[in-house]
Design a protein around this nucleic acid. Structure first.
Lengths: 112, 112
DNA sequence: AGGAAATACATTGAACATCGAGGTATATAT
DNA sequence: ATATATACCTCGATGTTCAATGTATTTCCT
């Protein structure tokens, strides 16, 4: 496929970038928000999220800073960079093209 | 994720099932049709398709029969079974839920 | 006060999917 | 004759995700 790595699995990146772009967020929070917003269609696992977060940071799409709660709990917040916003836009486009393609393949012959 | 294997990568199965369900087809033809119908959003590789075809057949979603062209070229046609049609319906539902979920995550905050 | 559950971070090994490259063979076009 | 398209297939490398596991703190319940 043309999209596979940059979409099928890249949908993870897309989702994470999208959440963080809306508001700075920390790991645990991202998982929660994803579940909420998708109405539990997604339930991303920590083992999936953290490596993605690290690679997004390494690639310069996100920056991280630590902050303590009133309670004293440390959280690692992520913030999207300009580069990250551009990447997000690109991945959104890719997703739309992919989804439209699937729709076209499924639609003809027996419109759901 | 909840869907990953049954959707992200399972989108391959969905796509193939959908093509064959519309009309019996052989391997090479499936790749061509997928490219056409999706307006080149997908370009499935043979190394991806044939293993999928074999596993769909093994699982009873497809049956195969051989046929020769006027030219004398042998083709292995695939036909969808009742079980395959049910699976297709199920995977379509999954896809729709997934796509809707992504849409919801992307949509809020900055409606494209 | 004590214990369970939720919060919050992270890593590792196994499983799985896809691709790229390679292989075989026939038909058609140049 | 030779190159390209058709048509099937396999294998190894790569990359992604998950389940399991680990640590530590905070909050809730009894």
């Amino acid at each position: 496929m043309k999209f596979d790595k940059s979409l099928l699995s890249g949908s993870t990146q897309l989702l994470v970038l999208s959440i963080v772009a809306q508001e700075d967020a920390y790991g645990y929070e991202i998982i929660t928000k994803l579940a909420e917003k998708s109405e539990h269609a997604f339930e991303m696992k920590e083992g999936t999220l953290y490596p993605v977060l690290h690679s997004l940071e390494k690639d310069g799409y996100l920056t991280a800073y630590e902050q303590e709660t009133a309670g004293g709990r440390k959280r690692r917040y992520y913030h999207v960079t300009d580069k990250g916003l551009k990447e997000l836009a690109a991945q959104k486009e890719q997703w739309n093209a992919f989804a439209a393609g699937v729709g076209r393949v499924l639609g003809e012959g027996s419109p759901a």
